[in-house]
Amino acid sequence: MRNRPDALRQIRSIDDLASSAPKRLFALSPNDALVQISLPLVLILAIMTRLMVIGQSMSEQAESPAILEMWKQLLIYRIDQVMNDWEVSAELRAFPDASRIQWEGTLPQDVRFQTLCSESQTLNDPTAFQLDIYDQALTPDTAKEGAQWVLYDPLSSVIPPGVDTMPSEALITAERRAYALSHISDRLLQWQQQVEELQWATVAEVAFRMPLDAAPEGEGASSELRTILSELAGKGYPFLERILREYEVTP
């Protein structure tokens, strides 16, 4: 009696052999394996990755001081003010995506996009643009904010009145300066990506719309890019240098 299960298994195997029925070792088809195993696995991995990112972010926030310092609050506020102004004036906010661009024929016909392209030229030198924004943010508006909200960075060209009497809280040290510049840089990078996205989409559209040249000046995609960018620039759409130099090989 102890061996009864084994005996039953053997009898079943003998029956399978007698009836020539193949024994199915794998019950799932490849399609089922893909859907039932791989897809949940990928989703699980994605969720895990997202959870890890969120956890890391929360950890960083936990390590930061709960209350911002005055200089930081004031400086970030001013920087954001300046950059928000720039976003508005450069019409960046009008183009969350390329579908907003107005077209006529083979080229864009959009004044706001012209403005954005022109204003975006400052992004070609992000360091200068960064310092410019930084300097604008340091420039005091005593009439609006009062004299107690003046910040001073000895490395900056902006020298507010009353520097000698200025409390140490208003002094922007190198560490504070780096923090401020980093904040500007992060946002500039976002701008740059957004503008590039828009301009690349424009390039793709123009490449599709523009008829082929009977006698092109050069060969290859770089030549086509130069031709298109030249055409756009002629129409008042100067593109970023990063786009212009896309196909240039870095020595």
């Binding site: 996205e197 690349w200 793709a204 086509e224």
Partner: peptide, 19 residues
């Protein structure tokens, strides 16, 4: 970015077609 990829693909198509 995807726009850049698409743009470069379009440019390649155009250049090849041109040639």
């Amino acid at each position: 970015s995807s726009s850049k990829l698409i743009a470069k693909k379009s440019l390649a198509i155009r250049a090849a077609a041109q040639e």
